[in-house]
């Protein structure tokens, strides 16, 4: 039996391999015909994680407060994914104060293009459907050169929003049950419930509501709990 490698070295080596995994994934996607695989659409493990960027941003960005929990479960090369989070914003501009807060949920699926990786590393593309319920307040105090003082206090309560996301990213096993990875999201198709007084500005889970599409990025750490031993799939010779 070989001696276990130390944790930091394992992380470094895995990080070094991430770029290589991207290249490998493109060839892996085309390598093994389905007829040679023994598909077992039975989950082998559940992965729970959180977004490190959201936690870090809460620490250093005074305008942001939020967190996000992630989970996925495998069905062969397909993963059912669910994200739940909260974010709140507080912005102060020269002529107004804006604040919001709300929960969001994303559900969807990812397809792993590293389907024969024995350690369940992932390079994936996926789809999400996002939902959010949030409230927001805006106070305007400014002096318009034409119209004079403009003062207004506006709020939207329990606004419902929904959108779609195209996702891509990596999951790399770092150490025993620990995975690291990132998810890049192209969010689009935002719609919100009617808000007659104030147009939504910032939708938790989505971002700026005036953008037709929006990029999002999560850097995540996961713990994978095995529920069934994974069957090894013979590689094509």
């Amino acid at each position: 039996m070989t001696a276990p490698r130390t944790f930091p070295l394992q992380i470094l080596k895995s990080l070094n391999n991430i770029a290589l995994l991207i290249l490998c994934s493109f060839t892996a996607a085309a390598q093994t015909p389905d007829s040679l695989q023994q598909h077992k659409f039975v989950p082998t493990g559940i992965r729970f994680g959180t977004d490190i960027l959201a936690l870090a941003k809460t620490g250093y960005d005074e305008t942001f407060d939020g967190w996000e929990l992630n989970a996925d479960i495998d069905f062969y090369r397909y993963y059912f994914a669910i994200d739940y989070g909260y974010w709140a914003r507080d912005f102060v501009s020269d002529d107004g104060v804006y604040s919001n807060g709300g929960d969001y949920l994303r559900i969807g699926a990812d397809v792993n293009f590293l389907k024969n990786d024995p350690e369940k590393n992932m390079f994936f593309f996926g789809l999400r459907y996002g939902l959010s319920t949030f409230s927001e307040d805006l106070t305007v105090e400014k002096n318009d050169p034409v119209w004079g003082p403009v003062n207004a206090t506006l709020s939207n309560s329990n606004v419902n929003a929904q959108w779609f996301e195209l996702t891509t990213g990596l999951r790399v096993k770092i150490w025993k049950m620990i995975w690291l990875g990132y998810t890049a999201r192209l969010k689009f198709g935002l719609s919100t419930s009617d808000t007659p007084n104030m147009l939504p500005s910032d939708v938790p889970g989505y971002g700026r509501a005036d953008a037709d599409s929006y990029w999002g990025f999560n850097y995540q750490i996961f713990v994978r709990l095995p529920v069934r031993k994974s069957q090894s799939i013979p590689l094509k010779k």
Binding site: G96, E136, L154, M198, P200, D210
Partner: peptide, 15 residues
Amino acid sequence: RQVQFVSEDCGERYI
């Protein structure tokens, strides 16, 4: 008319 907050730099806008 509706108001929408844009950003700290831009403030709000009227639609």
